[in-house]
């Protein structure tokens, strides 16, 4: 496994990025460089947060423009980029793909060809670091919401990525677990890019981006950016209700 690169993290660049879906433009990013250690993303549902995140590990290809992670194209050089970028999905349950915790955390390692004894050691080590070593033999189904989040995170961290991308990491958690998770995240020595509604999570970040209607409307240190976001949200709350999701949109496509 490659060692952790220096703390600044890989250079993630977006240039002239446009994402269109079903004839609508859902995201426009003329220029964005992500180099800071803790970068947050806020915005209403449907503002393009998840779309932006999924450009970063090649799950989504831009309709136009370029995305580069350390100079690599996440679509063309998917393997190399996925080595650098780990992705934690909004619903951890859907990210845990194997029935037993230990084997699920080892899933990525197995895919990389790491032999079994080494895998076991790495899995136990990673779970222990998250305070979840006792979960190793549990069935995925039996886990609580907070435990699922930890296991999903373990499965990604055990791969030693340089950047961790998280989509609403505390979305399924109660307050206690959300606070625990925030502390956990703060202690990780890698670049973090997190989309979140959880304003507590983002207050200690280096930089927060605000998205609205697929466009970046603010890019600031947390306090300012969050104030902007609150202003936008207040105005939106006072206005008419948003349009209902289109028929035929699957969960992944529809606004959450």
């Amino acid at each position: 496994m490659t060692a952790n690169p220096p703390a600044a993290g890989p250079r993630i660049e977006l240039r002239d990025v446009v994402v269109r879906r079903d004839g609508r433009t859902v995201l426009t990013v003329p220029q964005l460089d992500l180099t800071q250690r803790r970068i947050g993303l806020v915005g209403a549902n449907g503002s393009g947060k998840t779309t932006l995140l999924r450009l970063l590990n090649g799950l989504l290809a831009p309709t136009g423009g370029t995305v580069r992670v350390d100079g690599l194209d996440p679509v063309r050089d998917g393997r190399a980029v996925r080595r650098r970028v780990g992705f934690v999905f909004a619903d951890p349950g859907e990210q845990i793909v194997l029935p037993v915790v230990g084997e699920d955390v080892a899933f990525g390692l197995k895919n990389r060809g790491i032999p079994a004894p080494e895998r076991t050691a790495m899995v136990l080590d990673q779970l222990a670091r998250l305070g979840a070593a006792h979960l190793v033999d549990r069935s995925a189904h039996s886990l609580s919401g907070g435990e699922r989040q930890l296991v999903a995170l373990a499965g990604v961290l055990v791969m030693n990525p340089a950047t961790l991308v998280l989509d609403e990491p505390t979305g399924t958690l109660d307050l206690v677990n959300a606070l625990r998770f925030t502390t956990l995240l703060a202690g990780l020595d890698l670049q973090v890019v997190a989309a979140s509604h959880d304003l507590d999570l983002l207050t200690d970040f280096d930089r927060v981006l605000v998205l609205a209607d697929g466009r970046l409307v603010a890019d600031d240190e947390p306090a300012t950016a969050l104030a902007t976001y609150r202003g936008l949200a207040a105005r939106a709350a006072a206005g008419p209700a948003p349009r209902p999701p289109q028929r035929g949109e699957r969960n992944g496509a529809a606004a959450r």
Binding site: G78, E94, G108, M159, G252
Partner: peptide, 19 residues
Amino acid sequence: LTTSEQVAQAVVARSFFDR
């Protein structure tokens, strides 16, 4: 079906096809 979409994304993101 919607779950399968997310699971598919997770399988790709977790390097299953990078074997």
